[in-house]
Amino acid sequence: MNQIHWLYLSVLLFSIGAVTVLVRKNAIVVFMGVELMLNAANLAFVTFSRINGNIDGQVIALFVMLVAAAEVVVGLAIIFTIFRTRRSASVDDANLLKY
């Protein structure tokens, strides 16, 4: 099987993730979009690792997973806090950093 197809899958996943982030308002969903993009990237890394025949890509993928896990912890905590104070999980409402 041509390994390039894994890359197409990766692009597809990334695009879905990006569109999710751009169009959805619910913070949890946006968050899932972000995770999707990260995993798309992971897929690409692993694929490149196979193509090039070394393990650099796999190592980086492991790192990404680690960072993603940490990010989920912090990110979900933030979302919960926002939800608790504002009774809304919409990212558009969290605009305190506006100019």
């Binding site: 982030v21 751009l22 308002k25 946006v30 990212v91 969290a94 506006k98 100019y99």
Partner: peptide, 17 residues
Amino acid sequence: LRLLQTGLVRSYAASML
């Protein structure tokens, strides 16, 4: 230039993309 900071996360994301 400050006015570009809308505070909308999604527009930031769009500009990044």
